[in-house]
Write a protein that binds this DNA or RNA. Structure first.
Length: 426
RNA sequence: AGAGGCGUGGCAGAGUGGUCGAAUGCGGCGGUCUUGAAAACCGUUGUGCCGCGAGGUACCGGGGGUUCGAAUCCCUCCGCCUCUGCCA
């Protein structure tokens, strides 16, 4: 969530940014935040005065009791009960103001970076790089992956339907080993790049969902376990970033770099249709996520570092890719700037999103109360970033389609040692 | 899951109704001493909110209550420990 102080100091920039996103009634929202916050401050001061008075009287009563002056005590008690009623009413009003303010702030998205292009939908995203040198020419053998996985019997959707439901496939034989190999390869790359590996829980509580911005608005996108009031994670970003909720980091602990593999669960309600087939969209998929917590002054250098990391992995798999800078309208609620990576899947003749790398600046940190204390003892909110490095199913789809050769599918060289085979045969 | 116990500052650990944001020890930071270091000694050392400031206010797991006054009493939720049960 945005800081009130940011809205106050940089009102015009905030307003402009929200308009760029197409956020309705931006100006009245921002103004309301400032009004309520001013009311809150005023009331807080008044309440403190009342409490001050009543604390003073309570101390007097204590002293009078010790001196045995009971009649005087009774006189003062009348005044305190009056003050108590006042402070109670004021306290309730203050709580109400605070919760209204929080709700308002929860509903205001992050301010896009100045380099983020204007635009409403994915059609307006800006292509910042295309490396399509590796696009294969498929002539005789040009089957989409959903046909290949059936022919080679390596992913089974029917079985998934029976056991779980649509979007929960079984991976089998070389398919299962490819999943395992990719996870290991991606984790090794992350560890080599200095990320500390973690295996987080795949369920999170409500506080964590609020911390990274999945709640309160987007609970419909997560699977919820009502009986225990827990959610299945949509991405490892949630548990990993929440490791640092309510934490004050020392400057010399930074940068915090974590990588973790988890399955990710997404309900994807209403987003199914004939255009999403096979591995293109699933309710459960594997992903290796990288997360960093850094000093504000360094977050853009770190964003570049993360983009380079993802690019390096995709290149090593010899997949054609392009990098998009998301337009304001397509930007996630919590993000200041996001680069999407897409790989080209040659039989579908489609670009598939396989990674999303974002800088949230202090937006998540403000919700998380994630602060950094410098050597002078000054505290400020940290910046959080994360990126997929990488999400598996679409990478699999592109590998299968781009490397098909009739009776076999060749595996990228870098994976051979991870897989124990060089190609998948019928 | 049942019974009992516990939850205090970075850590350890006092405090059972009044002047307690909280003793003490350790750790951290600054200093004295030293060629340097250690030791010793001195000082300092939680977080939020309101305020230009002085200062005020809130926080002893979370929430609620009793009381003029709560770390301390009551209720409730959460977490941890021990025993019993179950189980990869």
């Amino acid at each position: 969530m945005l800081q009130v102080s940011t809205i106050e100091k940089e009102f015009d920039r905030c307003l402009e940014g929200l308009k760029k996103r197409g956020f309705e009634d931006a100006e009245s929202h921002l103004n309301e935040v400032l009004t309520i916050d001013a009311d809150r401050k005023k009331l807080q001061g008044e309440l403190d005065d009342v409490l001050h008075e009543s604390n003073k009287l309570a101390k007097e009563i204590g002293q009078l009791f010790q001196q045995g002056k009971k009649e005087e005590v009774n006189k003062i008690k009348e005044r305190t009960s009056n003050l108590k009623q006042q402070s109670k009413a004021m306290g309730e009003e203050l709580n109400a103001l605070e919760s209204t303010l929080t709700k308002l702030l929860y509903n205001i998205p992050n301010i896009p970076h100045s380099s983020v292009p204007a635009g409403k939908s994915e059609d307006d995203n800006e292509v910042v790089k295309i490396d399509d040198g590796a696009i294969p020419e498929l002539k005789e053998h040009k089957k989409p992956h959903w046909e290949l996985i059936e022919e080679f019997d390596i992913v089974d959707f029917e079985l998934g339907n029976k056991v779980s439901g649509a979007g929960f496939p079984f991976y089998k034989k070389e398919g299962a080993r490819l999943v395992r190999g990719l996870i290991n390869y991606f984790l090794d790359k992350a560890v080599d790049a200095g990320y500390e590996e973690v295996q987080p829980p795949v369920v999170i509580n409500e506080a964590s969902g609020l911390g990274t911005g999945q709640l309160p608005d987007k609970e419909g996108q997560m699977y919820q376990m009502e009986a225990s009031n827990l959610y299945l994670i949509p991405t490892a970003e949630v548990p990993i970033t929440n490791m640092y909720r309510d934490v004050i980091l020392k400057e010399d602990q930074l940068p915090i770099k974590h990588a973790g593999h988890t399955p990710c669960f997404r309900r994807e309600a209403g987003s199914w249709g004939s255009h999403v087939r096979g591995l293109n969209r699933l309710h459960q998929f594997d992903k290796v996520e990288v997360v960093q917590v850094v000093e504000p002054s360094k977050s853009y250098a770190v964003l570049d570092e993360m983009v380079a990391h993802v690019q390096d992995i995709i290149k090593s798999l010899n997949l054609p890719y392009r990098i998009l800078r998301l337009c304001a309208g397509d930007l996630g609620f919590t993000s200041v700037i996001t680069y999407d990576f897409e790989v080209y899947s040659a039989a579908q003749e489609k670009w598939l999103e396989v990674s999303s790398v974002s800088n949230f600046e202090a937006f998540q940190a403000n919700r998380l109360k994630l602060r950094i204390k410098n050597k002078q003892g000054k505290k400020e909110l940290g910046h959080t970033l994360n990126g997929s490095a990488l999400a598996l199913p679409r990478i699999m789809a592109a590998i299968l389609e781009n490397n098909q050769d009739g009776d076999s599918i060749k595996m990228p060289d870098v994976l051979h040692s991870y897989l124990g085979f060089k190609e998948i045969r019928k």
